[in-house]
Simulated scan of single mutants.
Amino acid sequence: MPQPDDPQVDRFYAAVGDRIRDARSAARLTQAELAASLGLARSSIANIEGGRQRLPLHMVILIAETLNIDVSELLPDMAESQPAPDLNNIDEKLHDADESSRDFVESALAQLIGKPEPKE
């Protein structure tokens, strides 16, 4: 279980903030309008959307109700708050892999980052 100061918790709140911002924008509300409807300062909404301010559970429900969406739309799945895989030094990490595995990984990465695969 992650602790409150764990980076995974920070990523979770950042993902919640992104979802709140997206839902607010879709509802065509400004931060100030959403804040006023919730009795908060506009800066609180900015901090929540930026993942810098953790909000109590009842506020998540109030925000969902104000934006006329289901509360589940504001909560990311855990995969969204997982760290990105470390792709630094990929050559070192693949050093002991067989050639077929290395070729597969290099091909997949080339497709993901949009770089053409090297010609043989």
Rank of each mutant, 00 (worst) to 15 (best):
P2W: 03
P2S: 10
P4H: 11
D5G: 13
F12K: 01
V16I: 15
V16R: 05
G17L: 09
G17N: 03
D18P: 03
A23D: 04
R24S: 02
R24V: 06
R24C: 02
A26V: 00
A27N: 10
T30Q: 09
T30G: 10
E33I: 05
E33N: 07
L34H: 03
A35Y: 00
A41P: 00
R42C: 03
S44Y: 12
I45E: 02
I48N: 06
E49R: 02
G50F: 06
R52Q: 13
R52C: 03
R52I: 06
Q53V: 04
M59V: 15
V60E: 05
I61A: 12
I63L: 14
A64F: 10
E65T: 04
E65L: 01
T66E: 08
L67P: 00
I69G: 00
V71D: 09
S72C: 13
S72D: 12
E73A: 08
L74R: 00
L75H: 00
D77N: 15
D77S: 12
M78C: 05
M78K: 04
P83E: 08
P83V: 01
A84P: 05
D86K: 08
D86F: 02
L87M: 07
I90K: 08
K93F: 01
K93A: 04
H95K: 12
H95T: 02
A97K: 13
E99Q: 09
S101R: 15
R102E: 11
F104T: 07
V105A: 15
A108H: 04
A108V: 13
A108Y: 06
L109T: 01
L109R: 01
A110L: 05
L112P: 03
L112D: 04
I113P: 00
G114M: 11
K115P: 06
K115C: 06
K115I: 15
K115A: 08
P116T: 15
E117N: 14
E120W: 10
